[in-house]
Amino acid sequence: MRSLIESIAAALARDGLILRGGFNITDGEAAPPGLSGAPVKSVLLVGQAGAEPWPHFLRWRENQPQTIVNPLDTWSREVIGAVAKDFGARAVSPSDKPYLPFQQWAMRAEGLRPSPLGILMHPQYGLWHAYRGALLFEDELPVPAVQTAPHLCDACVEKPCLKSCPVNAYSGEGFAYQSCLAHVRGTDGQPCRSGGCLDRNACPHGTAYRYPAEVQAFHMAAFAGL
């Protein structure tokens, strides 16, 4: 017989999504409200590895108005929301306002740390993964313990992710958002628009999960407002 967490994972898998770990809220810790308004006791992160959800998203999009703003967020909310309803959870999204601490949740749930690009480095997926939402439960769940893994960036001496961008968008000083945006929108930004961030693609880890060019182009267009 499946456990609750296994059943949730199976429901998410129908749309190419996966559980990305979770945790229980500790005594005295601030917690967001659940369905009833009471503080939640457990958080399960939902996301993807590689581009598994892409064909599911495309099939959904075929029957939607092309004027939808942020269609991937809309699809994610629908899919995760349906699973939440089936299992008595509250579904939340990284783009919901007021913003919830998704990156802190992710680091806590999977024991990950940020790469120089700000994206969390995963020991298997590299930089090719994402978090699409979370399921909040008012009951405490038997969440598996976090398996700590080495941070791959610590052993990476060359740091190719900081040497491939033509405008040096990423550095020790942070992300030069305006420089990146201007470059992507400009004449010289075609490689980024069609194939994704050059710095991200330069990372040697998790390449088996690298998003296809069309997926990277979709995300780059959303970033640049194209």
Score class of each variant (00 low, 15 high):
152 L>H: 09
94 P>C: 08
142 P>A: 09
86 D>G: 12
110 E>S: 01
157 V>C: 00
116 P>D: 03
73 D>P: 13
81 G>H: 10
146 V>G: 05
134 A>K: 07
113 R>D: 07
150 P>N: 08
150 P>G: 12
173 E>D: 13
85 K>C: 02
171 S>A: 12
100 L>E: 11
175 F>W: 10
58 L>H: 08
154 D>C: 00
135 L>Q: 09
85 K>E: 13
102 F>E: 07
100 L>T: 05
159 K>H: 07
146 V>A: 15
148 T>D: 04
81 G>T: 05
160 P>D: 03
112 L>A: 06
81 G>N: 05
158 E>H: 03
81 G>V: 07
113 R>E: 09
116 P>S: 05
111 G>V: 02
109 A>Q: 09
65 P>R: 13
115 S>E: 05
141 L>R: 11
102 F>R: 03
105 W>T: 11
154 D>N: 06
151 H>E: 14
85 K>S: 15
101 P>D: 09
151 H>A: 03
145 A>C: 12
107 M>P: 06
167 V>H: 00
113 R>W: 11
127 L>G: 04
130 A>K: 02
84 A>R: 10
158 E>T: 09
161 C>V: 06
98 P>V: 02
85 K>Q: 14
69 V>A: 15
54 W>P: 05
126 G>I: 02
155 A>F: 13
146 V>M: 11
139 D>M: 15
154 D>T: 04
96 D>M: 06
161 C>K: 04
137 F>Q: 10
159 K>N: 08
76 S>I: 02
173 E>V: 01
53 P>E: 09
102 F>I: 07
81 G>P: 02
71 P>S: 11
66 Q>Y: 13
115 S>D: 00
64 Q>Y: 09
120 L>K: 04
63 N>C: 00
99 Y>F: 15
73 D>N: 15
137 F>A: 06
128 W>A: 00
173 E>G: 10
104 Q>K: 11
94 P>Q: 06
92 V>P: 01
61 R>F: 13
88 G>V: 04
167 V>I: 13
154 D>E: 14
78 E>G: 14
123 P>H: 15
74 T>A: 15
119 I>M: 13
153 C>S: 00
170 Y>E: 00
157 V>E: 12
169 A>R: 02
84 A>N: 07
106 A>C: 06
157 V>Y: 08
166 P>W: 06
84 A>I: 10
120 L>N: 09
137 F>D: 03
143 V>R: 13
97 K>P: 01
67 T>A: 15
146 V>K: 11
76 S>T: 04
150 P>W: 11
145 A>V: 06
175 F>Q: 04
139 D>N: 06
117 L>T: 14
116 P>M: 01
95 S>V: 14
107 M>W: 02
123 P>M: 10
127 L>K: 05
130 A>V: 12
156 C>Y: 03
93 S>A: 15
83 V>I: 09
144 P>M: 09
61 R>C: 08
170 Y>F: 15
75 W>M: 10
160 P>F: 03
65 P>A: 08
114 P>L: 04
94 P>R: 08
79 V>A: 01
111 G>Q: 09
